[in-house]
């Protein structure tokens, strides 16, 4: 039934593809357009290192008074790596990640320890201290860094996501991605892990992309591998209409991130901690395009008004930008 009604509305080829013209009508932005029109002109090369190195981003954010996960230790040398256990002795749960990693590569989440002193991952798997040190050594050797050069590892606070979010995520902690142009939030989504994605919030691996109404912070649509769905495949809870806490503060953090990095086009990743509230996790200078699928809206629909607004009022401040986005880009 559903299929026939779908067939009636669309053309026969819509089951497999859309023509370039149809995509353009819907305002969908492709990779080439993102790179040529938004990334290259607005993100000068020299600013990339601010966000590609998470240590620098965190330092910047702290200077601006943004809350970020507390850094427990920075591991720069193999000597540091050897003393890893001492450095982390006071902390049950922590996250180890490469300072210059991308796309969640090399992120190791530890929830606690067992009696034998092994580290427990959220999935329940146990790692020996040796295995953790090896992971750190890999990070130092640059295995996960963007250009393969030597890197350092950050051990930091493991975010305890607020209950609203753990309800819709299988194991992993969901994060919020906000894409911004010239400091205007243009689109937002929540990334929630599934059993298939193995606790990771990576859409390629089968995590859910959940679109968020910029005006209210309520979820409006969810996709799994690009296909819309209403219920979490593993948790069997509804995904639509969930109100995210402290939405205005989240938007505020995102805009501050744009101001402190100076990047024109960027994505800001934020997690909501149960007790600490929204924490800025990282800034991405090359945000992906899956956010369009999660929201069911082409990015161009939002980017073009922002460009117009920005040329008309280049001096708009923080609050004015948020107000514009919330009034124009609501669901």
């Amino acid at each position: 039934m559903e299929e026939t009604s779908q067939m009636k509305r669309g053309k026969w080829w819509h089951r497999w593809m859309l023509t370039p013209r149809e995509l353009h009508e819907r305002g969908v932005v492709g990779l080439n357009m993102r790179n040529a029109r938004y990334l290259l002109p607005n993100n000068p090369r020299r600013l990339y290192r601010l966000v590609d190195d998470k240590l620098q981003t965190k330092a910047l954010a702290e200077r601006e008074g943004l809350s970020v996960p507390e850094t427990y230790a920075v591991i720069r040398t193999p000597r540091d790596a050897a003393r890893l256990e001492q450095k982390l002795s006071g902390h049950e749960a922590f996250v180890i990640k490469p300072a210059c990693g991308s796309g969640g590569k090399g992120v190791l989440v530890i929830d606690g320890r067992d009696e034998q002193g092994r580290f427990i991952k959220p999935s329940g798997a146990a790692l020996t201290p040796d295995e953790v040190r090896h992971h750190v050594a890999n990070i130092l050797a640059g295995l996960f860094s963007l250009s393969g050069q030597r890197d350092c590892a950050i051990a930091e606070y493991r975010v305890r996501p607020s209950k609203v979010l753990t309800d819709i995520s299988y194991q992993g902690a969901p994060d919020i991605r906000i894409v911004m142009l010239h400091g205007y939030p243009v689109m937002a989504m929540l990334r929630a892990a599934t059993r298939e994605s193995d606790g990771r919030a990576n859409l390629h691996q089968g995590a859910l992309g959940i679109g968020i109404d910029l005006a209210t912070g309520r979820t409006i649509r969810a996709v799994h591998h690009g296909n819309p769905l209403l219920i979490h495949p593993d948790m069997e809870v509804g995904l639509i209409g969930i109100q995210l806490p402290q939405w205005n503060k989240i938007l505020d953090i995102a805009v501050t991130c744009q101001e402190m990095t100076g990047l024109g086009y960027l994505g800001v990743d934020i997690m909501i901690d149960e007790t600490l509230g929204p924490l800025m996790i990282e800034v991405n200078a090359r945000p992906g395009l899956a956010i369009q699928l999660a929201n069911g809206v082409g990015l161009l629909r939002r980017l073009e008004p922002v460009v117009k607004q920005h040329t008309r009022h280049p001096g708009f401040g923080h609050a004015e930008k948020i107000a514009f986005s919330q009034s124009h880009f609501g669901a």
Partner: peptide
Amino acid sequence: RYTGYRLSELFRFKTFADT
């Protein structure tokens, strides 16, 4: 300087047909 869609994107964004 080509800013048009990649062929693979025509398939990737097919769910936009409904919107």
